[in-house]
Design a protein around this nucleic acid. Structure first.
Length: 880
RNA sequence: GCCCGGGUGGCGAAAUUGGUAGACGCAAGGGACUUAAAAUCCCUCGGUGGCAACACCGUACCGGUUCGAUUCCGGUCCCGGGCACCA
């Protein structure tokens, strides 16, 4: 086959993709006994067009899939669509198109984009979560988990927009106000369905230890999120509303003797009771309802509180402690009440300081005790700390001190103090040791249209009744158009009307839909058994767990934790034997680009795309200023940020592919940064990647006649042998890097190889050139599959490069007669020496000491010792 | 606020995990080819000093361990991700 003179990416890529399509090159079936590799990328939300983050994610996945395939494994790489969600409803509000229609047309467009990138995907397994064939199994498992008591109902807090009369997502609350109405958002309690993920907390925590293919940082984040903590449940008896006990949970029972007040959430029954005859308190409780429910917002808001005028009894001393209502205590967490120890908790300290509540120190830092022994005047210093608005971090460290001012507990360290206090509380029936979790049950109800209908029926006589299995799926009507005033299903009689499965009477359907995290918690099971007549079938046993999962670090907690939970729940229903869905995890970094803006008079920023901005630089090419190309007027530089619509700093992958081709796009993305780091967009970097591929093609075209030479002549020149050694040394590194999925240095190795064989001369040069180029093509083929496919066949190396053998290292090529060693004096580089590869320690030392520059730095000093690192360096330690 | 990361030339990065800091590429400067431009090719390229050999400084900042630290330890500053209804 004749090779075209110049590199024409469009022609090559279309031809190669057509061949893959025709031969169904990436279709896979289960083959018992053959080693499988399930390469899974997080599926995209069909937002309209691919963004660079998608291109990066799926290129990484594709390179891994093709690499594993060349190593001989049976590789599954599927793709699908996370198709339910909020953006489709927002689009509907803007353009009046039903979410279903918008979503399906986005999917069609994005599927074509993915195909143009040449990914080795088995499209016969495609899944879209908004199809009844998929979401019916969300409903089916929901019902199984309801039977098992894993799904249950309770109230939860949501953001309520009082103007639009609708529930808002956290994203839709900006500075405590609704994003469309600007109205101050209120917290509202509504009934919701929950999944009891906390029943799996212990297992979710323990199994993290086995996930050694996951990044340590992700495991740490999940551990902290689950947050197992050991503490004490403490009761404070009181005479309010006929008397009772107010319960709190604390991990610092050792500080109980320092509790100076007790605080409850605004919604707590005692708070509501106290407010009955206290209009000021009632107003404060009302005020606490303002603002969003997100933890970030709650944790950063100003700490406010109000005394109820009531008291509770300290469980050990009987002392009356004031009862406060505080906005930082949350009804949904723990008991909705906390004991406050201002001396040893920073937040309590701040609060006590603000409201002039007593502060009583009951822990002394042992370091300070040593200071006292050494004659420091501690009282003076402590006085200063407490009265100077300051709080020292160590006050909160449980291992730092011993109890003081605590009566019989004085002198006890943390563990002993907790034991003793817990025992005394227990004897009084006012407390016991308890394990608690930070992890909360998963609320899955959404008051939204575009999601999986929750399969429940509300019957006026029977209450909430599950939909029987034979009536599944509960199909979501696809013609509704949300208008921002709540869930359109609430007004859609065709959907609402039904009969009660229990009594046969007229009833209404539940209109809440499921959190979209449900959809994404098990799609990888469905890929493994497309068209299964049950939720999953035995084919999934072959493929699961996924050998490699690739996706953004932003999913490190929620999606990955829910998927792990859902997999365990499926296992306990008997659907799988797998306990963990993802064996190895690669968290890819973001794609970032510079931002530019102008600030309007109203403080609103208008963002300009980097393509429309010209940046001037100084003589070191550091950016100085920027102007808009269309009007020549300056714009502000807003720093480097994640590519996004809101900052208008995205680069459209489509333009890139059309201009340079998929191979260039893939090479640039893999070369610019290692997968886990963030990748900064750079147009001239794309040019560089394209230049490399053009050079590669030109080399092939120029040398087509000699690139079939195979045998290395026995009398090959030294330069040819040196080049061959360089190629194999580079290959050695590249093979290691491929195994580590560090593709940027693999590409760098390919560039080095091309450099090495490009300027090769002398006897045997053609043979080395031919061997080197065949290695290079195969190494690069997972990254730039189209061009390497065309060249491999065009040069006659073989038929389909997909079936070529992965390059092997030739140890003989690496042999060296002499090696260069670095010589240091006191750790500083002073010279280099060449020694025979077989030289012993004495010979190396001798050679090193003989170096002229080394001797200069040893003059007048005596040698203390000589450190020889074989093959690396010699360090001579001298002293005056 | 809480949890988890990151910080190396003008820029993206590399460094076999404690052993030559800056591979590979981009940008920039100089040169060749060309009537010219584009494309391509060659050379220089961390800072300071020096004709040079070379020396000193340099991996955010301060300190420590070590013969030797970008790498390990302690602290500080800055940037990013997540915080349960964005996905």
């Amino acid at each position: 086959m004749a090779l075209h003179e110049s590199y024409e990416p469009r022609r090559v890529e279309q031809a190669v993709q057509a061949e893959w399509e025709q031969t169904q090159a990436f279709r896979v079936v289960e083959e018992a006994g053959r080693e499988k590799f399930y390469c899974l990328s997080m599926f995209p939300y069909p937002s309209g067009r691919l963004h660079m983050g998608h291109v990066r994610n799926y290129t990484i996945g594709d390179v891994i899939a093709r690499y594993q395939r060349m190593l001989g494994r049976n590789v599954l790489q599927p793709m699908g669509w996370d198709a339910f969600g909020l953006p489709a409803e927002n689009a509907a509000m803007n353009n009046g198109v039903p979410p279903a229609q918008w979503t399906y047309s986005n999917i069609d467009y994005m599927r074509n984009q993915l195909k143009s990138l040449g990914f080795a995907i088995d499209w016969s397994r495609e899944v879209a979560t908004c199809t009844p064939e998929y979401y019916r199994w969300n409903q089916w498992l929901f019902l199984r988990l309801l039977e098992k008591g894993i799904v249950y109902q309770k109230t939860g807090t949501v953001n309520w927009d009082p103007v639009d009369q609708t529930v808002l997502a956290n994203e839709q609350v900006i500075d405590g106000r609704g994003w469309r109405t600007g109205a101050v958002v209120e917290k509202r309690e509504i009934p919701m369905y929950y999944m009891a993920i906390t029943k799996y907390a212990e297992e979710l925590l323990a199994d993290l230890d086995q996930l050694d293919g996951w990044p340590e940082q992700v495991r740490t984040m999940q551990r902290n999120w689950i947050g197992k903590s050991f503490g004490v449940r403490v009761g404070f008896p009181h005479a309010i509303a006929g008397g009772g006990t107010l319960w709190v949970f604390t991990t610092r029972a050792d500080t109980l003797m320092g509790a100076t007040y007790v605080a409850v959430a605004a919604e707590h029954p005692l708070a509501l009771h106290a407010a009955q005859n206290n209009p000021a308190l009632a107003a404060f409780i009302e005020e606490c309802k303002h603002g969003g429910v997100s933890e970030a917002e709650l944790a950063t808001q100003e700490k406010k509180g109000m005394a109820t005028g009531l008291t509770v009894s300290h469980p050990l001393t009987g002392e009356q402690l004031p009862l406060w209502v505080a906005n930082y205590v949350l009804m949904g967490y723990g008991e909705g009440a906390v004991m406050a120890v201002p001396a040893h908790d920073e937040r309590d300290f701040e609060f006590a300081h603000k409201y002039k509540l007593p502060i009583k120190q009951v822990i002394e830092n042992t370091k300070w005790i040593a200071a006292v022994r050494d004659g420091w005047n501690l009282d003076e210093y402590r006085y200063y700390e407490f009265n100077g608005d300051k709080w020292k971090e160590w006050y909160g460290e449980k291992d730092a001190g011993i109890a003081i001012n605590s009566g019989k507990y004085d002198g006890l360290p943390f563990d002993d103090a907790v034991e003793a206090i817990a025992a005394d509380l227990s004897a009084k029936k006012l407390g016991e040791k308890k394990v608690t979790w930070r992890l909360r049950d998963w609320g899955i109800s959404r008051q939204r249209y575009w999601g999986t209908p929750i399969p429940m029926i509300k019957c006026p006589t029977c209450g909430d009744v599950p939909v029987p299995d034979d009536q599944l799926p509960v199909v979501l009507p696809e013609e509704c158009v949300p208008d921002g005033s709540g869930n359109p299903l609430n007004k859609y009689e065709k959907f609402l009307q039904c009969t009660c499965p229990k009594c046969g009477g007229a009833a209404r359907r539940e209109t809440d839909t499921m959190d979209t995290f449900v959809d994404s918690s098990w799609y990888f099971f469905r890929y493994a058994c497309p068209g299964a007549t049950a939720m999953v079938d035995s084919r999934a046993d072959y493929w699961m767990p996924a050998d490699q999962y690739i996706g953004g670090i932003e999913h490190a907690i929620l999606h990955l934790l829910y998927s792990r939970f859902w997999t365990k729940a499926m296992r306990d229903v008997g659907l799988t034997t797998v306990s963990e869905p993802f064996r190895n995890l690669l968290t890819q970094g973001m794609v970032v680009a510079p931002t530019f803006y102008r600030e309007g008079k109203d403080g609103r920023k208008q963002w300009f795309n980097p393509a429309d901005v010209a940046v001037t630089v100084d003589d070191k090419s550091r950016p100085l200023s920027a102007v808009l190309k269309t009007d020549g007027q300056p714009v502000e530089m807003g720093g480097i940020e994640k590519m996004s619509k809101s900052k208008n700093n995205g680069v459209d992958p489509q333009t890139l592919i059309e201009q340079y081709g998929a191979d260039t796009a893939r090479v640039f993305m893999m070369f610019a940064a290692p997968p886990e780091q963030s990748l900064e967009w750079n147009d001239s970097g794309v040019e560089g990647a394209h230049r490399f591929l053009k050079r590669l093609w030109a080399f092939a075209a120029d040398n087509a006649a000699v690139l079939k030479t195979v045998a290395l002549p026995a009398d090959a020149s030294d330069t040819a042998l040196a080049a061959r050694r360089e190629i194999h040394e580079t290959l050695q590194q590249a093979l290691v890097d491929f195994g580590k999925y560090q593709f940027n240095t693999v590409i760098s190795a390919c560039m080095k190889m091309l450099n090495a064989i490009g300027k090769l001369e002398g006897k045997g040069a053609d043979a080395v050139r031919s061997e080197g180029f065949s290695i290079l093509l195969r190494l690069l083929s997972p990254i730039a599959p189209h061009l390497t496919h065309e060249l491999w066949r065009g040069l006659g190396y073989g038929d389909d490069i997909l079936h070529a053998q992965w390059p092997q290292l030739d140890a003989a090529a690496l042999k060296r007669d002499s090696i260069e060693l670095v010589v240091q004096v006191n750790g500083k580089l002073r010279g280099k020496v060449n020694v025979p590869a077989a030289a012993d320690k004495a010979a190396i030392e001798q050679a090193a000491l003989a170096d002229e520059n080394v001797q200069r730095f040893m003059e007048g000093q005596t040698v203390v010792k000589i450190i020889v690192v074989p093959g690396k360096l010699v360090n001579i330690v001298v002293k005056a």
